[in-house]
Amino acid sequence: MINALFGFTFVVGLALTLWAQWRVKGNFNRWSQVAARSGMTGAEVARRILDDNGLHHVPVQVVPGRLSDHYDPTAPAVRLSEDVYYSNSIAAISVAAHECGHALQHKESYGALVFRHRMVPVLNFTSGAAPFLLFAGVAFRMTGLLVLGLIFFSTVVLFHLVTLPVEFNASARAKQIMARQGFINGVEEERGVNRVLGSAAFTYVAGALVALMELLRYIVLLFLQNSSDD
């Protein structure tokens, strides 16, 4: 039963992860071929959004890698991949606006973002220790280690769950700003933005679901282990 449980959750988790990655790459590639009527590049859109919101001190930097775009709150800086920084495609300006959404969250001390940042030091420890504790608890039938591993892994799950409102809110901000500022025009461009940002958001949903399945799997194992020991 335990082997079947591990096998099922592994296959479902892998399928969700691969599907999410396929959707992101597919939609990004599709809308990378469609130029925005505004003609603005990802870098120009990001700079405009930041300046319009008083974030003149936040640089927009180009970084290597594909889909390596992110907002660094420690710098702070908006960092865009070359495919986004230099391109005037719907995909590029959507991603750039999304990352600026995080910069606006940071400026306003958006609650979920602040909480996620505060979790990072704890997560750096618990995420590394949890797999070893869970493995040892199952392999050596040590309930105490398994429970401790579950507690540690719960922080990983919580981090995934807190990430969801952070990402959805950043995308919502991006869509509103892009429409209001005229970075996109017409139904077709709005549809492209929704596809690009929607598929990106699904990767975080998939990650949270996989983490939840992992947690539930070990909870079941704890129950089965305690039952067999009685």
Rank of each mutant, 00 (worst) to 15 (best):
F125W: 07
A20R: 10
L158G: 15
F125C: 12
R47V: 12
F6N: 14
E188L: 08
D72L: 05
G207L: 04
G7F: 11
H57P: 01
N169E: 11
A91P: 02
N194I: 08
A96Y: 02
N3K: 14
E188Q: 15
D69V: 02
L158Q: 14
L148F: 11
G39C: 09
H160K: 15
M40A: 09
V210E: 04
M178E: 03
L18S: 12
V220R: 15
L134W: 07
A112K: 03
G39Q: 01
S199L: 04
I90D: 14
S81E: 06
T74H: 02
K107V: 01
V147H: 07
G26D: 12
M40Q: 09
R217M: 15
K107N: 06
E99T: 06
I93T: 07
V147R: 10
A174T: 01
Y86M: 02
T126W: 09
G128H: 03
S81Q: 00
G137L: 07
A206M: 06
V147W: 04
L221Y: 12
V60G: 05
T17G: 09
S87N: 08
R66E: 13
A179I: 03
A4G: 15
V60W: 04
P64S: 14
A46F: 00
I184R: 05
T143F: 05
E167K: 03
R141C: 06
L55G: 02
L14D: 03
V45P: 00
Q61R: 12
F202T: 12
S228K: 04
D72Q: 13
S81I: 08
M142H: 13
Y85I: 07
P76A: 01
C100S: 10
K175H: 01
A172H: 02
F125S: 13
L224F: 05
A96L: 08
H117T: 08
R48M: 15
T163G: 09
M213W: 10
A172W: 00
L67Q: 11
R141I: 08
S127Q: 02
